[in-house]
Structure formats: structure tokens, C-alpha cells
């Protein structure tokens, strides 16, 4: 028998296939317009504007921006105080991300267990995430208060310290405070990621390992962690990006202080822009901040598309 073409079988190839595809494409562009407009106006234009502003001197004393080439970049990259912001940011980002991932995973492992009232517990776990972050910041500021905070009360009554710790007015204490608060807020989201990952695991693997004689730690180390590896990569990148952008909690808790102990990049930009009114310098730091973020974003997007 001859080869049967589409036409022979009575299935007519649509005459307007090309124009249909073009129509589809037009429709796709049409529904993209609102999002693209918002992106252009709210993100792209300010970013390009900030990029160009980084080549200008524009302070409260200047009537209009003065082009100064790379001077701002030279100033920023030679100013030890501003450079220290990168170190502060790194400490905050690495500390928070590691802590969040550890607790998020631990909590997910707990919530993965079958126990009475698990649904209620899981829901309650989401609370920190639902609370406005400034509210959480004030709750933690209150708990960490140097005179009557509950954390100090606990440490004192447990005999761990002899006198109140002034968390928010010493360098290390302030850093610990913002890391703890941010971690507390981020745990629910990370837990959800890890829990979703765990639920995608064949539970019989764990049962098989139990029969094989593996203990809890072995099961976590040799089965669960390898299974969650992709989740670790994505949440790690996502967590670092989120923490690099963090502003509200730090501003509400410490305002970047004491002195500059918790002045991360976001706070630095804010201070340059709205305390020193040096928009050129703020833009320069902002641009450098974006370039700091970029490798992580690229990594995140790549691992996302690899998942597909």
C-alpha cells in the first residue's frame, strides 16, 4: 500500500496554519503587555536610571546631576566603611541561609512524621511567614530587650548568664538578633520546600533501609539528603538572594547599628540615598549590589530550567 498522506485520510491540513500560529503569537504578546508594562515602569526604567545615575554626582548641594565618570565607583571601592558593608552582608546572608536551611530541614523532618495533630502543627508553623515582617521584628526586639526581654530572663534563670545581655547594642548581639529574626521568619517557607521534597520520596525506601538496619541518622544522611539535593540547591540560591535583598527587618530591629555593625548593602543604599542625600553614591552601591546578586540569580534560574 502506498504511504497514506494526511490528505488521503481526509484530515485536511488547516489552510491557515501559519496565520493561526501568528495569531497565537500575537495573543501571547497581547497578554504579556500588562506584565511587561509594569516591569518596564517599576523595575527596568528605575534600574537603567540608577545605572546612569551611578556615573553622576548628585547630592543635596547639587542643583542637577554632574557627570563624573567612574569616580563614584572608585570612591566606593576604596572606602573601607562601604567595603565593610559587603562583609557584613556576607556574614548576614551566609549565617541566615545556613541557619534557615538547617532549621527548615529539621522542622520539615518533624512535620513529615505521622503524629496526632500534625495538620494543626503544620498550619501553626506557617504563622511567622504570615505576620508582617516589621511586626515580627518588633516582637523579636521586645524579646531580646536588654532590660526586660524574655530571652534574657530565660538565660538568667537557666544560669547561663549572670547579667542581662544588651543584644541590640553590641556588634555581635545585633548581628545575632537580625539573623535569628530573619531565620524565624524564613523557616516556614523553607520547611514547605523541604516537606514537598520529602513527600516526593518513596516512603518504602525508608522502610527498606530500616529493614536493612539503618538508623535515623544513616537514613537522613544516606537517603534523605541525597534525595533533597535539588531542593537544597534551589532553596540555597533562593535563600541567599532573599537575604541579600533583606531590608525591613534589619531596619526595624537595628537600623544598621550599633554604629555600622549591621549595615548591610540595602541599609547602606538607603542611608546614602535618604540620610546623606547622595543619590549618585546610592546608585553606585545599588549597581554593585545587583552585580553581587547576579551569579546567584543565574545559578538559580539555571537550576530551575534544568528541573524542567
Amino acid at each position: 500500500m502506498d504511504m497514506v498522506s494526511i490528505k488521503d485520510r481526509g484530515l485536511k491540513r488547516p489552510k491557515t496554519e501559519r496565520s493561526l500560529k501568528a495569531g497565537d503569537r500575537r495573543f501571547a504578546y497581547l497578554i504579556l503587555i500588562p506584565a511587561m508594562t509594569a516591569f518596564m515602569v517599576m523595575v527596568f526604567y528605575p534600574f537603567v536610571d540608577a545605572m546612569s545615575m551611578s556615573f553622576f554626582q548628585f547630592t543635596i548641594y547639587d542643583m542637577e546631576p554632574i557627570f563624573i565618570g567612574f569616580d563614584n565607583f572608585v570612591t566606593v571601592l576604596t572606602d573601607p566603611y562601604v567595603l565593610a558593608s559587603w562583609v557584613t552582608t556576607a556574614v548576614f546572608v551566609v549565617g541566615t541561609t545556613l541557619l534557615t536551611m538547617t532549621f527548615g530541614l529539621a522542622w520539615a523532618l518533624l512535620m513529615y512524621q505521622d503524629f496526632h495533630g500534625r495538620a494543626v502543627f503544620r498550619t501553626m508553623t506557617l504563622l511567622p511567614w504570615i505576620l508582617p515582617s516589621t511586626v515580627s521584628a518588633f516582637v523579636w526586639a521586645w524579646m531580646l530587650n536588654g532590660k526586660y526581654g524574655v530571652v534574657n530572663a530565660m538565660l538568667l534563670s537557666a544560669g547561663i548568664v549572670d547579667e542581662n545581655i544588651q543584644f541590640l547594642s553590641n556588634d555581635v548581639g545585633a548581628m545575632v538578633a537580625i539573623i535569628l529574626t530573619r531565620t524565624w521568619i524564613s523557616i516556614p517557607l523553607f520547611m514547605s520546600f523541604f516537606l514537598a521534597g520529602l513527600q516526593g520520596m518513596d516512603f518504602q525506601q525508608i522502610e527498606a533501609a530500616r529493614l536493612d538496619g539503618a538508623g535515623n541518622l544513616t537514613i537522613v544522611r544516606r537517603l534523605i539528603l541525597p534525595h533533597l539535593k535539588p531542593v537544597f540547591l534551589v532553596t540555597g540560591a533562593l535563600g541567599m538572594i532573599g537575604n541579600l535583598q533583606q531590608f525591613d527587618i534589619i531596619y526595624a530591629l537595628t537600623g544598621g547599628g550599633p554604629i555600622r555593625a549591621t549595615t548591610v548593602l540595602s541599609i547602606e543604599v538607603f542611608k546614602q540615598a535618604f540620610e546623606n542625600w547622595d543619590l549618585g553614591m546610592a546608585s553606585t552601591i545599588g549597581v554593585l549590589w545587583v552585580f553581587t546578586l547576579m551569579p546567584l540569580v543565574v545559578f538559580y534560574l539555571r537550576s530551575l530550567f534544568k528541573e524542567d
Binding site: 529493614l211 536493612d212 538496619g213 538508623g215
Partner: peptide, 27 residues
């Protein structure tokens, strides 16, 4: 006892050899 599961429950990131030796290794 040892058990064979319906889903086989093999450890996906381990090779055949590692899958088979796992039980003896952990003990």
C-alpha cells in the same frame, strides 16, 4: 527478615552494587 517491596524501593542515587551492599555496610 528482608523484604521486597512492590515499588522495589531501590535507592535511586546508588548504583546496583551500592544498593546491594547498603544493608551490610550500615550494620
Amino acid at each position: 527478615i528482608a523484604m521486597v517491596f512492590q515499588s522495589y524501593a531501590l535507592y535511586p542515587h546508588m548504583s546496583v552494587r551500592q544498593n546491594m551492599s547498603f544493608g551490610l555496610e550500615v550494620t
